[in-house]
């Protein structure tokens, strides 16, 4: 495997095209779970975990069921009659992610109860998180900006999912760190709470635009 391209994918997903601040995916937990650093870390870890696993599984589902060129249906049908099912990817991915999260929750509850308690409510919350679906879909769309046209390979997908999760965790930690400080500041009454958090998010997004100049 080409390690270099994996590193490029990682940097690209964490900094240049950060899921939260550049792609604006997963904004709900970004604002909802960023009041305390401890809960932000819990949520971020859960996202990394689920995103990496979901990347691998959705890649497999897409490759072996939906994409006509590599589908296992090729065994049953001739190439001309093979249906193109790629339009199903959104609904199929949601199905996969939801079941996956449920499955992971059950396994963790039984086998690793401490981790289950640490992730707590955040694990089921992730089921409907658009960042996970976004990561899965982007793996299929490819990253033409860094010379990866078309679908990523399985390893690349997992690395992409993992680093997207790391980028998400980074943003949550930065945001919660700022919000913990904001709690103690004297903020105008009308801006207290969520409004000032939105302003902060906007300022952070502007700052993160600086990374778009990074050439790799």
């Amino acid at each position: 495997m080409d390690i270099k391209i994996l590193l490029i994918i990682a940097i690209y997903s964490i900094l240049i095209q950060n899921f939260v601040l550049t792609r604006f995916l997963g904004l709900c937990p970004f604002l909802g779970v960023s009041q305390k650093i401890s809960s932000a870390v819990g949520m971020g870890m859960a996202v990394i975990f689920v995103m990496s696993l979901a990347s691998a599984i959705t890649w497999a589902v897409y490759t072996y069921f939906l994409d006509p060129s590599t589908s296992i249906l090729g065994f049953f049908f001739s190439e001309e009659t093979l249906p193109n099912l790629t339009f199903l990817r959104t609904i199929a991915f949601i199905l996969v992610i939801a079941s996956l999260v449920q499955f992971i929750e059950m396994v963790l509850q039984k086998k690793v109860p401490t981790l289950y308690r640490a992730l707590g409510i955040y694990l089921p919350l992730i089921t409907t998180n658009c960042a996970i679906l976004g990561a899965a879909v982007l793996n299929i769309d490819g990253f033409s900006a860094i010379g990866l046209d078309g679908k990523l390979t399985c390893i690349q997908s997992v690395v992409q999912g993992f680093s997207a999760g790391v980028g998400f965790l980074l943003m949550l930690i930065l945001m919660s760190g700022i919000r913990e400080k904001l709690e103690l500041e004297s903020i105008p009454e009308s801006l207290k709470g969520v409004p000032i958090a939105f302003i902060m998010a906007g300022l952070m997004a502007i700052a993160f635009m600086g990374f778009s100049g990074l050439s790799i």
Partner: peptide, 8 residues
Amino acid sequence: SVVILGVI
């Protein structure tokens, strides 16, 4: 598509 999604 119905069959594939159903099976999944």
